[in-house]
Structure formats: structure tokens, C-alpha cells
Design a protein around this nucleic acid. Structure first.
Lengths: 191, 191
DNA sequence: CCGATAACGATGCGATCGCATTGAAACCTA
DNA sequence: TAGGTTTCAATGCGATCGCATCGTTATCGG
């Protein structure tokens, strides 16, 4: 057996370059050459580890989702309300790194409209998100599943919409966070 | 003066082709040639009316916004609550045409992250949206401006988030609409 | 120490890109 | 009807694209 390198590490270096390109120029800016240059490796290397441009792009969203899941799983021993807030606030870009991450995320959301593999990954990720939020709401607020699920979807949609507005520069991250916190600590009565 | 053609009509035909390409393949699929082919005109014509690809792309979002504004202005004689619901429900893709429109819209939202001119147009459009919603909420619910504005941003964010979920296929247009209608007819108490 | 093989770097190819250029109809004015 | 001008279609060009291919180097089991 020849030349043993850390396969996963190599792939991560390249995907990190991909994320930077996507954050700066959108997915349109992605080419085997631009990503290779940004990652500081040869184009041959990128081809070696991903084969095609499409596989590289898909790997980009796949790894992004996996990282978010790992971060979430690190909150396993926290109370339900904390975990709920983690999911809702996680994507709001408070730091520069966070902004890059969520910018990449929304680039892929747009990509999902026309790309089946990307859509599947995102659909699965949001499905899990709804599932987890529903569980936490059931536990924290004592709601039934159907009601909890409706509220979970509402909360996640609100979080998405506010995040979008932060990205466009319409509101600040602090305002978005305050809005979500206010919303989660409200009770509703039909009126 | 030679050859008098309807300038606006010609531009619209081309932009309509652009929208179709964007809906089907994303902004990545846009080229002077693909848009010309889809619009059924020569590439020279596209160049004649828009000059550069970038100008064409910007014209695409500009016209999309202008059309939405015209539709909204047609509701000028309706009560505040109706006009508020028009803004909130307008983008939820109920018909095929609506789905194309909102797909194009979100393609441009992603584009806005890395394109200044597009971002300016979208930022102005959302600013007007918040403004109008705030006015209607003030009138309909008798809230003060600050409170009405916070609620307007919340509602618009919810609408955006739900729309995104409809596009990804997570929920149906009917569920999204029901969620928004339920939300707007609720009163809140801090809990 | 030696072949087998993973891990590339380099290069070539055909396709496509945005854009500039060119020239010809078509039409209005004078 | 002559001429000026708009409206375009056609074409050419240099750059970039994804991808295939080829050759080299480094490593490790035997």
C-alpha cells in the first residue's frame, strides 16, 4: 500500500476552499480551478478527491449539514428550551464565521430549487430540524404533537425569514435574536 | 427616426425568457445564448437591448419587483387587513406561474449576497414591504408604530420562511397559507 | 530492495462563455 | 427618393470551463 494520507482531512481542506468561494462569489463562482486555487492545492488534487464539479458541490452541503448536526448533538445534556433555542438561533449570523456559514447555506437553498441531490439533503435536514423542535416543544410546553409540530414549523420559518433579513442587511443579528426570544416566550390565544 | 418597435415589449419578451431559464436552471444557467434561445430571439437582440449579461440579470429582478408593486397597488381600495394579507400571501406559490415567480425571486435573494445592485433592489423592496405592512397593522389593530413594525417584520419573516418550505417541498401551499392566516388572527400575551 | 499502487501535477481538448465588431435590412424624415 | 438612424443577425475572438489523460513521485507490503 502506497502513500497513506488523511483522506478526510484532504477533503475538508478542499471543501473549506469551496465554502469561501461560495460565500464570496456564490455557487456561480465555483469551478475546479477557483476552488483549487482558494484551497491552495492543485486542480488535479480536487479532481482526485471529488471526481466531478457536481460531486464537489454536493459534498459542500453534505459537510455543512453534518457539522451543524454535530454542533447540535453537543447540546444533548441541556434542557429542552435551550436545545430549541440552539436550533432557532444557530443560523443567525452573529460572528463572521457564522455569516459565511449561513451565506453558504442560503446559496445552497437556491441551488436546491434546480438540483435534486442538494434538495434531498436540505429536505432531510429540515425534516430532522422540525422533528427535534417538535420534541422539545412537547417537553417544554406540554403541547400535543400536532400542535407542537405546527408551532415548530412556525418558529423555524420565523428563524429562516429573520436570518434572510439579517443577511440582506435589513435588520441586525441582535434584533433577529430578540425577536425569536420574544416569540418563544409568548403564549397565544385566538383572537 | 427609423424602425419604431415597442422597446418595452421587446425587453419584456427577453426578460420572460430569462425568468424561465432562472426557474429551470437557476441563475447559473443564464447566458446570453440560453436566454436568447428560450425567448426565441437572436443573441444579437439580447445584446442590443441589454448590452451586458449583468445588465440583463439586474433587469430581471427589477422587472419582477415592479410587477409585484403594480399588483399590490391594484388593491389600493381594499381594507387594511386584506392588503396586509395580499403582501403576506402573494408570494406563496399556489399556481404554477406563482411557483416560477417565487423560485426566481429566491434565486435573486441568493444572488443578492454577492451582487450589490441586486441587493439594493431587494433591500428597497423589503423596506417598502415592511413600511406598508406596518401601516396596515397600525390601522387594522390600532397598534403604535414601533409595535406594529415589529409585528410586520415578524409576519414577513414568517411568510418568507414558510414560502421557502413550500418551495423545498416540506409543506404545501395550503398549509403555509393556513399558518399565516392563523397567525394574523391571533393576539399575543406575554407568557 | 522492489514492484504495485495511491496520490497527485501537468497538460490537452472540445465546448461554451461574454463581448466586440460588422454589415445589412427596415423605416422615418426631409 | 435620398439619407440618416435604429434594429438587429452573424460572426470572430480570447478566456474559461469541465473533464480525460498521462506521467511522476512517494510509500509500503512482501
Amino acid at each position: 500500500m502506497p502513500r497513506a494520507v488523511d483522506h478526510e482531512q484532504r477533503r475538508f481542506e478542499i471543501v473549506a476552499g469551496l465554502w469561501q468561494i461560495v460565500a464570496e462569489q456564490g455557487i456561480e463562482g465555483v469551478s475546479l480551478r477557483t476552488v483549487a486555487a482558494r484551497a491552495g492545492v492543485s486542480m488535479g488534487r480536487v479532481q482526485h478527491y471529488f471526481g466531478t464539479k457536481d460531486a464537489l458541490v454536493v459534498a459542500g452541503i453534505d459537510l455543512l449539514v453534518k457539522r451543524a448536526v454535530i454542533e447540535y448533538e453537543a447540546t444533548a445534556d441541556r434542557p429542552p428550551r435551550d436545545r430549541l433555542l440552539h436550533i432557532l438561533l444557530q443560523q443567525i449570523p452573529a460572528t463572521d464565521a457564522g455569516r459565511i456559514g449561513v451565506t453558504v447555506w442560503y446559496a445552497y437553498v437556491a441551488k436546491a430549487m434546480t438540483h435534486t441531490a442538494v434538495r434531498r439533503i436540505l429536505a432531510e435536514a429540515t425534516r430532522v430540524g422540525v422533528e427535534e423542535c417538535t420534541r422539545h416543544i412537547e417537553e417544554a410546553d406540554g403541547l400535543e404533537e400536532a400542535e407542537a409540530r405546527a408551532r415548530a414549523i412556525e418558529l423555524l420559518a420565523l428563524s429562516d425569514g429573520l436570518t434572510l433579513r439579517v443577511l440582506i442587511g435589513d435588520i441586525t443579528a441582535e434584533e433577529a435574536e430578540a425577536s425569536i426570544r420574544a416569540y418563544t416566550s409568548r403564549r397565544m390565544t385566538s383572537g
